[in-house]
Design a protein around this nucleic acid. Structure first.
Lengths: 345, 345
DNA sequence: GCAATTATTTCAAACGTTTGAAATGTATTT
DNA sequence: AAATACATTTCAAACGTTTGAAATAATTGC
């Protein structure tokens, strides 16, 4: 059944005994084309399943209608959910999306960037790897007029760029506030890798909530970890070694870390005696399967972050916003309280 | 800093006072080009950050070096992990990947297919939605010579197609076998949606393991559910209503269903008295956070499934395999046993 | 019925690249 | 010094589409 003569405008034109331009204009509903002609062309196009060749159009129009996305990986639900927002908005606006994972490695990020540059994407959305300090591979895009929107991850020293960020300060503030309101005075903070920009924003949210509510701060209540299980256990052990500063609540950087913390606390019976109430960033459905779930989750609204990023990008592509008029969009977090009445097991 | 004259072959040719073809051939290392000329051209190209225009190349070469992927969604770890395999292999072979989610809706799947057809992908990898009965939107690809590989999901009546599938029969067989070897005689089977093809393969794996080991089968030990929590609870309740057929072990269709089952069993204290040992398809890291983890997971090797799918697709694109010589690849599952000695809590 | 107007179609160039054939330049042979 | 061989460069067409300008056809006014 394979048809080897490709159905092009020329093919249709020959069949209809008219010129290529008439066929093109008929298909694009030019008003100068006779209604009957237009109808004949469109019928023929339908019958032969004519599909315009995008490469040719792109070459002519000097754009690809492709948007590139570079992100650390797709196993993290934050990014996967953000893709949902990006893809949906892109499709609605006639853009395709090419997703490339950096696996949090600079080398792979550079490769992805170059690949997307060769593909002549119309714009780029990027959540940088945790090792990205140098931005030349990303700056090349702006140098030739292709807009770039940084989302979620972005080092504070990278000033001149468009960014869409979670208001992680506000999220952490609210979480801390909830714990204070529930009577806690010894609230531990378990932070994430220090290379990730918003680690500090979250810490500031925590600190400010304490200050605003006159809860004394102690550095004994603060520890940092990365996504390594061992390090998290070590960090949380350190939080519980000070007898006069024994935490009764915990704010954790992100879900896997939160889960590791909860698991550890359960093993030491802290949870079973209802001693520690936890909150963390992230809001996956797995929470409902935990025997000692966190009392609340900080929902970062990834879909909304993604949608804001691509919405801004498309405005930049359409030159509705000047590429050098750098924008900063903050997306608020939402505190999701899980069945408080149930309490810990 | 924005440069508005695009750096094309012509641009370089003018700068170097030579013809466009010399520049092109120099960059592509044609042996007929003088070494010194080649060097000058390549230097100039580097200095001006020349990037070949892919649309032009694609137009000339009548291909896009883009592979389309349609899958139900990215929130399912199986698919996300399969993307890893696909993307990696694609990149190594000079292909880009456009991913499109159908959200398990036929309408969205048709839209995605049409979008990818317009983009002139060189090949398509698809995990059909659970509502796909009619294949015209996918058959259009083969009709114009674009190969399609179906992976994971594929209804048995769709005979003439290339497919890469999990050997879900074997996976389920091994899981059932393990439970039998551990002394269980009343092994419940909690199946998934009947529209999904491999639901039946898994059931057959279960049945055959029972037969081969002379464990009597009872329909009272079999129930089906979909991904709805309520339905799963109802289904599992039904498995435990028969006093003389009370299950001591359970094989579950997929992880969220498994987790719902475990949660329910814990609420009825079955687990706490070590009465039911569970196994399920899927192998996420969340298992380690459960207080009563399954004794084993059936790892479906999604990366390998993805890699097999794209490897086959690229062979089809390169015409190393004839498009009508339909291939079927099976990828074995692997049983991952979780600390058996620990037992249930 | 002829010019003027309007409706419709076609021409031709352009987008950036590749590539076999043709042209030019240089070196070797006799 | 002419003939030959070889090295190197350039020409020109092609890929499929869009689009303003030009050409043609049909209609109107007088």
């Amino acid at each position: 059944m394979t048809n080897n003569t490709p159905v092009t405008l020329k093919f249709l034109a020959d069949k209809l005994k008219m010129s290529v331009s008439t066929v093109s204009k008929a298909l694009n509903n030019y008003p100068t084309i006779n209604a009957y002609t237009r109808q004949r062309v469109q019928e023929m196009a339908r019958d032969f399943h004519f599909t315009p060749n995008k490469s040719a159009i792109n070459l002519k129009e000097k754009r690809s209608r492709i948007i590139g996305v570079i992100l650390p990986n797709l196993l993290d639900h934050f990014f996967t959910r953000s893709i949902y927002g990006i893809e949906q908005f892109a499709t609605q606006n006639g853009y395709n999306v090419i997703i490339s994972q950096s696996h949090d490695e600079l080398e792979k990020e550079i490769q992805s960037a170059n690949m997307l540059l060769r593909s002549r994407v119309d714009g780029l959305i990027v959540a940088i790897s945790k090792h990205t300090q140098d931005f030349t591979h990303l700056n090349q895009f702006e140098n030739i007029g292709i807009p770039v929107v940084y989302y979620t991850r972005n080092p504070s020293f990278n000033l001149n760029c468009h960014k869409v960020l979670c208001n992680t300060f506000q999220g952490c503030y609210q979480a801390t506030k909830l714990l204070i309101d529930r009577g806690h005075q010894k609230i531990a903070y378990l932070g994430g890798p220090k290379m990730i920009n918003f680690t500090h924003d979250r810490f500031n949210g925590y600190i400010n909530a304490l200050k605003d509510n006159e809860v004394p701060f102690s550095s004994e209540l603060v520890a940092y970890t990365d996504f390594d299980k061992e390090n998290t256990i070590t960090a949380i052990k350190n939080l519980f070694v000070y007898p006069e500063n024994k935490p009764t609540a915990l704010v954790a950087f992100k879900e896997p870390i939160l889960f590791d913390a909860i698991k550890y606390l359960r093993s030491t019976k802290h949870f079973k005696t209802n001693e520690v109430e936890c909150i963390g960033f992230g809001n996956t459905s797995f929470i409902s399967y935990l025997d000692s779930p966190p009392i609340a989750s900080i929902e970062e609204n990834p879909e909304s972050v993604g949608e804001n990023a691509i919405s801004l990008l498309i405005q930049l592509i359409n030159k509705e916003i000047d590429i050098h008029n750098y924008q900063k969009v903050m997306v608020d977090c939402k505190l999701i309280v899980h069945g408080l009445n149930a309490g810990s097991v």
